[in-house]
């Protein structure tokens, strides 16, 4: 399941969705989830608020593509990916990735792969409100490093 939405998400409900035996066989003994939250500082500046913009349609399409890649690589269930857009405050949840698999290694790796690729492939942009006004967040070289290690195997 892939969702781009303004509203917050409830990780307890999402856990139940991941462990629903109709979607995921009970043989799936490992669940790994990742939650990303808004930090209250970035590059030495206090962040008062953040707004997230995306490219409707392409965001969902690019995430569907990385889900396909993850599923071809690890024996995992259909992952859940939720990304929030719009106005957010420090401490708010931004992104959720949930993966179920028979064993922990595949679940950990697939979850990490999904967030690493989301960060460089999905057309989403953050803008922060700081003391010096609104500014767009710069892309980080380290995010490309994190994603490229998955191609070096």
């Amino acid at each position: 399941m892939i969702a781009i939405q303004q509203q917050d998400f409830d990780i307890a409900k999402l856990y139940h969705q991941l462990t629903d035996s109709q979607l995921n066989p009970n043989g799936y003994g490992a669940i790994v989830t990742f939650v990303g939250r808004v930090r209250d500082f970035n590059q030495q500046q206090q962040v008062a608020a953040m707004s997230l913009e995306h490219y409707p349609g392409m965001t969902e399409k690019s995430l569907a593509e990385i889900v396909l890649q993850a599923k071809s690589r690890w024996p995992i269930s259909e992952p859940i990916i939720i990304h929030r857009v719009g106005e957010l405050l420090p401490g708010d949840q931004i992104v959720y990735i949930g993966v179920a698999s028979a064993h922990r290694k595949a679940a950990f790796e697939a979850c990490e792969f999904l967030i690493d690729y989301l960060k460089i492939k999905a057309p989403l942009w953050k803008k922060e409100q700081t003391e010096s006004g609104y500014q767009w967040v710069d892309a980080r070289e380290t995010d490309h490093g994190a994603a490229s290690r998955w191609t070096k195997q």
């Binding site: 490219y55 990304h83 931004i94 989301l118």
Partner: peptide, 10 residues
Amino acid sequence: VAFFPPVTGG
């Protein structure tokens, strides 16, 4: 065709 800066989601 879409033009945009490097992405910063996640």
